[in-house]
Write a protein that binds this DNA or RNA. Sequence first.
DNA 1: ACATTCATGTAATAGGTTACATGATTTC
DNA 2: GAAATCATGTAACCTATTACATGAATGT
Lengths: 179, 179
Amino acid sequence: MNILSYGLLALVSRTEASGYDLMLKIQPFWQAKHSQIYPLLGSMEEQGLLSAKWIQQADKPDKKLYSITPAGTDKLHEWLLEETAPPVMRDEFNLKCFCIHLAEPSEVRRMFAGRRKYHVERMKYYKDIQDAIPQEYRNPGHIGFEDYILLQKAVMRTKASIDWIDWVEQEYGQWTAEA
Amino acid sequence: MNILSYGLLALVSRTEASGYDLMLKIQPFWQAKHSQIYPLLGSMEEQGLLSAKWIQQADKPDKKLYSITPAGTDKLHEWLLEETAPPVMRDEFNLKCFCIHLAEPSEVRRMFAGRRKYHVERMKYYKDIQDAIPQEYRNPGHIGFEDYILLQKAVMRTKASIDWIDWVEQEYGQWTAEA
DNA sequence: ACATTCATGTAATAGGTTACATGATTTC
DNA sequence: GAAATCATGTAACCTATTACATGAATGT
């Protein structure tokens, strides 16, 4: 049981879902491809943490719907109370910052402008999903609360990244004024 | 040449360094163990991007100092102008948020308090390193500028995480008032 | 006609962590 | 006496990405 497995189990604890559903839902918070997810679901089924049934669909491929078992719920609850692993962040942009001394000011500016655009797009992506959550689901009584606060985190951290870029452009501009 | 290799090359472009030095320097921005770093340095040496010499040290083990070659500098500069990969963030805490409905309010509060403490400690860690950079190195003329802005990013994003936790505690508290 | 969405799976490869291996010096 | 720091390296294992494989329905 690795971290991703627990994340999938957590999503299934909310509503039954297919591997495909889970891939889409976990995407904004943990990048994982279907090729990683399907085997994990299979092994959790074997361990009795999940149960599955095939659903026939007209006009769409059949899907395997997973539900959490009582054993799965117990396991999830144990995990919640355990120490949480520190977050891992890997951003190529940070490493590029180690050698901005090699680039000309115009190149540096283009680099930062490009990353700013990326973050602005991300911000819109998160806000659009968040805005789609109805007001009445945004309190702890609903599972929508969980999505709502997670998206808020993404929004706030993304805003910090944009603010940082603006701050750098100011600091950098002071020393390398140019049109 | 993967992303980490470029990051190491970028660090060496600033000052010659040993694998051990590089492991420590890259740590706050890209988690990598020495077992991953040493082979990458070896392969970059083989490719002619780095050159190395052994330094004998009294009272400390000998070390292998790497310097960047002209070919290495060219390669780095090319990399700088290429598309930057999107950042990858994996935080177990986010996945735990998917099932806070399973926990009691006291458990949820403990969870958030624990993560808050973690971020506050990280904040101090980043600020201490940043504060150690002399004022006169904090402008684009010095390589210290690169460290200075990167630490500022870490500080700003960490602050966003703490602010988010405070915001969640407020939102959560409104609905589950308790002493 | 071509791309995308839905839907599942396996195989091969690359990236990253833990463990094994060694060993002197310094700090608690 | 035990732990940490400095310093390098390899082996085994786990995690994650890319590629292979299939196929109907819908949208451009």
